[in-house]
Simulated assay, not measured.
Amino acid sequence: MNAYSAQTDESALTLLGKRLAAFRIRNNWTQAQLAEQSGVSKGTVERIERGDSVQVVNFIKVLRACGMLESFLSIFPDDSPSPMQLLYMGKIKSRQRVRSPHKNTNTANILADNAAEYNADKPANDASKTPWVWNEDK
């Protein structure tokens, strides 16, 4: 990797454009093909390669088409805390084992509880209408 210090903004854009053109040529893409893959105009690709100023969103589209967007975004490191830092700060609680329900739980009680919730909105004096129960007719 060459250590290069751009003296001006224009020289940095020119260097970036030359590197993009070299990358495009290495991949045997024409400017039109790269533009079509990116969803930008051919003129936008030409301007980037010349070192002219373009909209950032168009530049990001070209980088995405080249598969270089992640590399570009890695210029500025993610400053969010790592999982270990979160653990030390107490933001992440230690994992606990999930307990299974007790084996002596009676499923009839669960069904009765659900039936009580089902009938909660019906009047209590209507005893002739009882809810349907599975396998009742057998």
Rank of each mutant, 00 (worst) to 15 (best):
M1R: 10
Y4L: 11
S5Y: 06
A6W: 02
T8P: 01
T8F: 00
D9A: 12
S11W: 01
S11T: 15
L13T: 03
L15C: 09
K18N: 15
R19E: 05
R19S: 08
L20F: 02
A21C: 13
I25Y: 07
I25V: 10
R26V: 12
R26G: 13
N27L: 12
N28H: 09
N28M: 03
W29A: 02
W29G: 05
A32G: 11
Q37M: 05
Q37D: 04
G39V: 09
G39N: 13
G39R: 04
S41C: 05
K42I: 13
K42S: 08
G43L: 12
T44G: 11
T44W: 05
E46D: 15
I48G: 06
I48L: 12
E49Q: 06
E49F: 14
R50E: 15
D52L: 02
D52R: 03
V56I: 10
F59W: 12
F59Y: 14
I60W: 11
K61S: 07
K61Q: 07
L63G: 15
L63T: 11
L63W: 03
A65D: 10
A65N: 12
C66H: 04
G67L: 11
G67R: 10
M68G: 06
L69N: 06
E70Y: 14
S71I: 06
F72W: 07
L73Y: 09
S74F: 14
I75F: 14
I75W: 09
P77T: 11
P77Y: 07
D78R: 11
D79L: 10
D79W: 15
P81R: 14
P81S: 09
L87Q: 07
K91G: 03
I92R: 13
K93H: 07
K93W: 02
S94M: 03
R95V: 11
Q96A: 00
R97P: 00
R99S: 07
K103I: 11
N104H: 09
N104D: 12
A108T: 05
A112R: 03
D113E: 06
A115T: 08
A115L: 11
N119L: 14
A120L: 03
P123L: 06
D126Y: 00
A127K: 04
A127M: 00
S128Q: 07
K129I: 09
P131R: 03
P131N: 00
V133E: 04
W134E: 07
N135H: 04
E136R: 15
D137H: 03
